[in-house]
Each structure stands twice: as C-alpha cells, then as structure tokens.
Design a protein around this nucleic acid. Structure first.
Lengths: 221, 221
DNA sequence: ATTGAACCGTTATTTCTTTCACAAGCCGTT
DNA sequence: AACGGCTTGTGAAAGAAATAACGGTTCAAT
C-alpha cells in the first residue's frame, strides 16, 4: 500500500513511480539536444535516442500536462523547463554526507552533483578519528552536530557512505533528524519510514544480476 | 525433469528480468541470516526482512526450481548455494576498468567487489597522460591493448568510468572487443547491442527522481 | 485553398507483475 | 496414527504498465 504525496499542478491523478523515475532520463536527453542546437523534438526522436517507444514518452508526459504541439513535437527549451519544475530541479538542494572514508571522499570530490543543483554542505563521521579532517573544503563534523547543522543549513537530503554494518543505525539517526531523502551507498537494504525517500546505489547488486545473463556465453570456468 | 541453470537461454520458460534483478537481494539477505546463525527461513520471514510479500518471494524462486520444504521453509545454506549457482556467483569474474580519473581510482580501490568474486585485473585510459600510472597494483594501459588483454585474461565484464562525452565511444570499443557486460558510471544512456548486458550507476538520476517526492515538504524556496 | 505527411494526447488493448487462495506436504504433539 | 499449526508451490485473479490505435491539429508544399 503506497501512500503518496499530494500531486502538484495536475491535482487528482496519481503518478506511477516508474514514470517519475524516467523523467530525469528525459531531462538529460533533452539537455543534450538543446546543447546540440535542437529546438524541437518529437516523441519519435526522443524515443529512438532513449530506446523507448514514442507512445511511452507521450504517455509519461501526459501525466503532467500537455507540453507538445500536434504535427510539430515538443519545444525542447519549454519541455526542459517544465520537467525541471515538476522534478524540482530548478532550485538548489542542500545535502550532507555521512561517512568520509574512501568512498565518502570520492563522493565529496565528485564534480557531477553541483551542476545539477545538489550541494554537499556538510560532512559527518561517527569515528572520532576522522572528525576535524578537512575533506574538499568541508570540515568533518561529529554526528552529535547532525540535527543542528541540518536545521541551520536547511538540509533535507543525506548521502550515506558508511560501512554496511553501520548503515541502518546512521540512517535511523538521519530519519530522527527529519531528513526527507537518503541516497544510500552502503550495500544493505535499509528500512525507512514511508515518509522518507530512499535511493540505493549498489554496483555489486548490478553486477550480480548481470552475471545471470553472462552464463550462457562460452566463457567456461 | 530438472531445469538446468545453464541451459535455459533458449529454454521454455523465460524468466522476467525483474525477477533476476531481485535475486541478488535475496542472496544478500540470506547471507546475512546465515552469518547470524539462521539455518531455516520462511518466505514470510525473508519477506518482512526485505519489505516484500511472501508470495512474491515464493513465486520468484519457483521460476528456478523447488527449493523449500512445506511446513518448514527454506534451508538457508542450500538456497544460497542454489541462487549462487543460478546467478553465477560461484565463480570468479575477471573484469577491467576504463577511465582512471578520480572516480576510476575510487572504483579500483573499492574493497566491495573482490569478496563477491569480481576482480579488476586491468585498467585502461585513453589519455596518454595517465597511461603507465600505477593505480592500486595495476598499471594503466593504453586502449590499444584492450583486445589483447581481454582475450588473455578472459575478461567479459568492463567497468566504465570515463567522462560523459567519451562514454559512448569507449563502450563501442568494448563491444567491438567482445565484452559481454558493462557497468557504466558515466552519466549517459549508452547504446549497446542486445547481446551485451548494460547496467548504469547514476547517483544524479537517483537524486533527480527523489526530489520530485520532496517538493511537497515544507522546505519552501 | 487544399492536400498530405507528421505528430500529439488519449482511449482501448495487450502484455507483464503481483497478489490471492488453496491443495498438498512437513513436523511436533498427543 | 491422527491432529493441528505452518509453509511451500502454483494456477487463477487482479492490478499495473506498455503498446497500439486513432481522432484531431499543425505546417509545408503545391
């Protein structure tokens, strides 16, 4: 039973989560097309770019409004703007990181977040040995300062990069501090209340399902 | 008659991909249960651990065989072994990495792959500046050596960690060299032939769909 | 003007997934 | 050896999602 948030402009229609998961894909493709100088695109073109059927793209977009023009297609700039608004990409999203081990440091230094509006404003670690370190231009703080910092900096998103065995307890702390979204890099399937949005990043799981399809190949043992 | 794990590529029952994607989740939960000393588990228990219905778990498993015992549940050790065999986790998977920038280096040093059987045996970079560097205990090689190395080391899996604008061309090279599976960290949606299994790791996409659900919250602009 | 090719938005249809429900089997207890 | 509490495996039913189909609009070319 999925309790979901209230819709925005559209009102009554509940948008399936699979659809929401695809929107960022559209945003990315459209951005690139815009940068290539394309000003109008059809569901056909967008679909062949993303390997999906035009019907699916039109259907997905129709959950949110009518953005196209019959006979023409979609204005790239306009659609981008609309999708950005729908997804909340037209604003800054302050975030924090928990766990400044090797992975955490790589995440802080990853240059891909900021251009999309995701700004890591604080870093925490439960290990006193790391507290006080300088990572990027952040000072690593103790977990005790979590609540204060999140409130002061209006941080709603946390990125978790702690060892597997600490993940659930760290995530419990974050939930307790009213974090609304968690991007979890630890190889576990954490429990969170339904009001918190959880996304897992787990390359090992990806590989483990990949190998199923690789078994037929003649790379014998 | 027993349906064999390796022979089902063209076999009668095609297993839905969603099911295959869930198997690693089961493996992980079962592994942890085993380490906690649990020897028998019911679909009920496993389901509540993973937040899914018992029926789904039973159905998923039934695609591959009959592993449980009525009135008892599943023998953890046995089920783990079976799932490992089905997914091909009972063997070593040699892999290579392309792109030894910051992200690539973090991947090479990530200690989570090897324990699961994924071994990065070679690293490549198209930038001559990086070629010859020592990363972890790997020497960075030029792309020209790709084909030779993959063949010699029997590498079927490649991990791609190059900048977005290079990704498609690198992936084309890998396909050309008969790579069968690609784990792509570049923020693009690459095209690959159907015979190649592609998995994308993309934290930005995850965040961009997360924010949709965060908009209702009272973190107003 | 008129035609025709291109394309959207939406309803209808098909396909895919999940859940239900129950016969059949296991096990401890009496 | 029979009972009762559990649990699996599986068809059938229900629910979701993807695709097809089509009326209606746009625009360029004639």
């Amino acid at each position: 039973m999925e309790r979901n948030r209230v819709s925005m402009a559209t009102g009554s229609t509940q948008v399936p989560e699979v659809v929401v998961l695809r929107l960022p894909l559209y945003v990315r493709a459209l951005t690139q097309m815009r940068d290539d100088g394309t000003s109008v695109v059809s569901s056909q073109q967008l679909g062949s770019r993303l390997q999906m059927t035009p019907a699916q793209i039109r259907k997905d977009l129709s959950y949110f409004g009518r953005f196209g023009k019959q006979g023409r297609g979609y204005n790239v700039e306009f659609l981008l703007q609309e999708l950005g608004q729908i997804l909340g990409l037209d604003r800054r999203w302050p975030a924090c990181l928990v766990g400044v081990g090797r992975l955490g440091r790589a995440i802080i230094n990853y240059p891909g977040f900021a251009p999309e509006g995701f700004h890591i404003l604080a870093a925490f670690d439960s290990d006193d040995e790391h507290v006080g370190d300088k990572v990027g231009d952040l000072d690593v703080r103790p977990m005790a300062l979590l609540k204060d910092t999140l409130k002061r900096e209006r941080i709603a998103i946390a990125i978790v990069a702690v060892p597997a065995h600490e993940a659930q307890s760290v995530i419990d702390d974050l939930v307790e501090c009213d974090v609304k979204g968690i991007l979890n890099y630890a190889p576990v399937a954490p429990q969170v209340p339904m009001s918190v949005v959880l996304r897992n990043i787990d390359p090992v799981l990806s590989l483990q399902s990949m190998t199923y399809y690789l078994l037929d190949e003649d790379y014998e043992i």
